Amino acid sequence: MHVTSAPLPPRVLHVTQPVDGGVARVVADLVRRQCAAGMTVSVACPSSGGLPEELTGLGCEVLTWEASRSPHKGLPGEWRRLAEVVSLVRPDVVHAHSAKAGLVARLVVRGRVPTVFQPHAWSFEAVGGAEAWLARMWERHGARWASRLLCVSRAEQRTGTSHGVEGDWRIVPNGVDLERFRPASPSERSLSRPDAAGPLVVCVGRLCRQKGQDVLIEAWRTVATEVPRARLVLVGGGPDAARLKAAAPPSVSFTGPVQDPVPWYRAADLVVLPSRWEGMALAPLEAMACGSPVLVTDVDGARESLPPGLARTCLTPPDDSEAMARALVHLLRGPEDLGELGRIAADHVRTHHDLRCTAAAVAGIYGDLLSLETIECREPITT
């Protein structure tokens, strides 16, 4: 009798830089689900931040790959080290996250191992002039070495194609862990919100140009006049912290980096993310899962992440402090019931952005690639 053995779970190598913010959260969430599904998972990433320790605790092999955020600084050394990692791990699939990891991983592998590139917003949106031109040229060229281009929103894909990036696209919306991100019970909310003097607005994100907190602080000057009891809390750390603190009015406070944003999502009457660019921001999804309404800028993924019908109220143009101020004032003292908006938001995320569905869709992409690949015939990766 002929017995056919079942295929072994794939050996996956994630490559990531950065190791903080939403990208790190996505990587950690995927690794957790993939390890639980029996995959052999390794991650190559810088040793800084809390991501390596978190991944190790999940039973994942973490291999140090020191890399800067800059696309050109130290590139030859980063290439050599990642080539060593790939040769050591011998992955069935390489999954590269964000611009720098996507650059180096594709240069190392060059299509000899099935490669998924996930941009987490396009690199050319972050820069201007010659740098933006070079980034576009690279993404157009590098797409040939990605077996799949994985976007978290249709808008992110459209941005890529509108700039000449062509490839085999897959769209998998971001998901959140609904066991961790959930509405507070009455006792949890009272503990997280001891001071109920006025409306509390919270912004969770890395303090940097992409996230647009400078626009929010400028808008807040109007809010502080129109809704004087309102308070704004910026949750997170980053390179712009000192500059933002110097520009902030008295009703704005800063927490610095936090281990767990959930208490802040639950405490907030409104969560705002004034990003200049995104693929599909994770913080608004987390906030909505916790039952908080959100105000976000109309960047890639924003409309797709909101419940139908809320775009008119919960979207503002990016980089427009006056429009943001008007929207904030309207929401904080207008006719909308913020509690009801939060309940609608929580239902929407439970239905459309469950992390389990996201992880299953990514696993399906791996499976499709491996069903087409003859693993034994790969060309070896050498340094």
Rank of each mutant, 00 (worst) to 15 (best):
A281K: 09
S251G: 11
R231P: 10
V152A: 01
V23P: 01
G339T: 13
P186C: 12
S87H: 14
S123R: 14
E53W: 07
G205Q: 01
R206G: 06
L234C: 02
A155E: 14
G205R: 00
P114R: 00
G256Q: 00
V116G: 08
D319Y: 10
D347L: 10
E188W: 14
L13D: 14
A219M: 03
A302P: 10
K245Q: 13
H353T: 03
A224S: 10
L370V: 05
W133F: 08
P10Q: 04
L355F: 06
T358R: 11
A67I: 11
D354E: 05
R303K: 04
P7K: 00
G21I: 04
I344D: 12
C203P: 14
V94N: 04
G111V: 06
T159K: 11
S70P: 13
G309N: 03
D29P: 10
E340H: 12
P318F: 10
A247T: 05
V127C: 15
A96E: 09
R136C: 09
A219W: 09
P194L: 09
V62P: 04
G301Y: 08
W133T: 11
E286K: 09
C290M: 08
L216F: 07
G59R: 06
L331A: 07
V294C: 10
A184R: 07
D168Y: 07
D368F: 07
V152Y: 05
A325T: 02
R81H: 09
W138K: 11
V108N: 07
V85D: 03
F117S: 04
P71M: 02
I171D: 02
Q210R: 14
E61K: 15
G309A: 01
L30M: 07
S70N: 09
R343L: 14
A287W: 01
G50Q: 09
L306F: 13
R112K: 08
E53M: 13
K245I: 15
G238L: 06
V294L: 08
V233I: 14
L232F: 06
S321E: 12
V227C: 09
V23C: 06
F254I: 02
S371C: 10
V215K: 03
L178P: 11
L30D: 15
E139K: 08
A6F: 12
L341A: 00
C377D: 13
A224L: 05
P76L: 03
G21H: 03
P46Q: 00
L103A: 12
S292K: 03
K100Y: 07
D240I: 03
P114E: 00
R69C: 15
R33Q: 12
G175P: 13
